[in-house]
Design a protein around this nucleic acid. Sequence first.
DNA 1: AAGTAAATTTTTTTT
DNA 2: AAATTTACTT
Length: 805
Amino acid sequence: MDLLSTLNPQQSEAVQATDGPLLILAGAGSGKTRVITVRIAYLIAEKGIAPHNILAVTFTNKAAGEMRERVESLLRGQKLPSAPLISTFHSLCVRILRADIEKLEEGYKRSFTIYDTDDSTKVIKACIKDLGLDDKQTQPRNVRNAISAAKNRGEDHEMFASKIEYGDEKKATIAKIFRMYDERLLTANALDFDDLLIKAVRLLRTSPDTREKYNDRFKYILVDEYQDTNALQFALISYLTEKQQNICVVGDDAQSIYGFRQADIRNILEFESHYPTAKVVLLEQNYRSTQTILDAADAIIANNVNQKKKKLWTANAGGERISYYQAYDGDTEARFVASKIEEHQRRSLSDRIAVLYRTNAQSRQFEEALRRMRIEYNIVGGFSFYERAEVKDVIAYLKLAMNPFDDIALLRVVNTPARGIGKTSIDALQAAAKANGASLWMTIRGITDKEFPLDVAMTPRAKQAFGGFKDVIEILIRKAANETGDASVSDIVIAAIEDTGYANSLRAENTDEAAARLENLEELVNAAVDYDKQSENGLRDFIDHAALTSDTDRYDSSAGVTLMTAHMAKGLEFPIVFLVGLEDGVFPHSRSLSEEKDLEEERRLAYVAITRAEKMLYVTHAMHRRTYGVEFASEPSQFLNELPLELIDDLSPGASWLSYARSASTLQAKAAASALRGEADPPKARNVYTGKTYDSADAVNEFFKNKGRAEPPASAGGVQRSYPAAPRETPLDRLRAAGSQGRPTQKVAMPPNSLVPGTYVRHDKYGRGLILRREGSGDNVKLTVSFPGVGQKKLIEKFANLEKD
DNA sequence: AAGTAAATTTTTTTT
DNA sequence: AAATTTACTT
């Protein structure tokens, strides 16, 4: 029974509760992955469950891969008749649909193509154009998001349309596009990411046979990161566990950070009511971080009202204090981080370091600073390999070989490399296709038919060019079809690169950039060769893999320095973490400032970021930040103010926000004390960078109530409380005390619903614009707004009559 | 039809 | 500031 020997009692209980529904509430760093992997190994080795009867579902390929490896190493030396299926939600759905989508009788064939976000947006753009709409008024990206959100709620275009209230033109337009979009995807035999889930769920719902088949196959199901599941994923799991209820879900409501993707936290909160016989295990011991880091994370999350109470503890020592740095601007911030990294690396190279930021756009300055100091780093996100233009081009050729009706893929490569097929010819082709209700591929075949050419207004030269393209694709189709014979996946990939003239046109360019592209294509061939070696699966699977592989999956766990967003860091851990750009509008993001629930999600994201740290945490922010090429004065993040200030070391040169915040709290205390004594003119508290001026006794008292952890006025005098901290008020206490006045560290300078920089607004005369700067206060607020086509305008907020757009 | 210059947009977070 | 899209040449 040595599988269990490394586990604590709760973990062990979670592993051994194999039958029936089980909810594991696993705090950050509580050994969640260890429990899942040991559980799988335990099922196989101790319970004699056939591996292929086990299904584990994760969100990313990276998580799935890691789990696979760890299970394998736990079972090392054992001969297994099969392997457990450890898969992402999306790959699982693809697997289900490739087998049985034809049973849906919707017209989809099992050779369907997967459209990524980019492809979907292109289809939507075309729909908007064909409906005669203005794509400035109806932005493809927004429509796509609306459709995706609807799909993830489980609505199809009919349900979406039926829910529109009378007079809601915007939604009515989206509904029209929605419908057209779905029709076009069907014509192209294509499914978008959301459809993969929708169709799989629909298939399980409508086909009892299929449902039965998978219920019999998957007798034990595990779901990781359950707090991030949405309605569709919940439905999928429900159908799969219909017969037996050996369902084990693992999650942490404090780490739910995908609400914007319709993740529904209720799935985890209401697990017990959905499965009344459910057993619940709490994993509360943290093995990852120092007490100091846990205290910091705890202090942040304590400001959220909506959460399950959970108390993480650790046997680890207090550890080093948190380091804080205030930079003049983003460049200085990046230089500080780079030089600190260098310092750490000089001492020890074994401590992996992460730089975590809110948005990918922040990465550049850190990359530059690290490069200047010749520090090697790894960056996750941004441009992933499979998103490179040349890779997507070649994949498009491969997709066409499998499914020539894929219009998007066809449009992508019809003139890449240049074949003399220009915009005019493509317009004519699309018009002809539309007139005949046919796909572009069929239209090309029609145009170039020798005996009965389709009559299309087109120059002979254009027709000939299309003929050339048709030949190229037909050769590829034959090669792909022959795959079962002797051609391997890599052979076909090479054909798509060479036989199409793609490589030659790059060679002819003879530039460094073209050479880099050729190298990327070589890497693609290598990926295909590897694929051939370790898998029996064909081209179809290879393309599916490319479509479902994301940035996150290219994380190298052995890299010394890793740059990534806080989102991507979920599930990872690093001895040293730099959490950067802690400014209002950056983190929390400006788009999340207006809604309380969005702000709470930002706070959970900050919690996730902080709890990645094992030994050391740095927090940094800049006083000036450049956005869209314009420099703004930025304010420290409200999350900084929520940290336990007594645990922080200030590394900033000169007077920083932190030193103000600290001395301010003693000043405030004095002011409050004198106010309470009834003194006529209490010393005025100065601006503490929270944007709020505490110039009345009431305001000062409110400050302390809100701050929650500040010293009571009587104990004022600058005595630093010794660590550990006294018990804090809970958010609920605070809410009661504040008389439901809202959030603790609320700011007056930037009230949540106001027009802050980064917000889009609508002006009667100038139309839509972006707020660049906000100055002044009260009635004198001046806004600098950039209106496309008009330029920058300075407006008085009071008179401008701006509406949020 | 292809290349260049000018205008416009971009920043959440992701399978 | 950088990347992408559009408009204008040749």
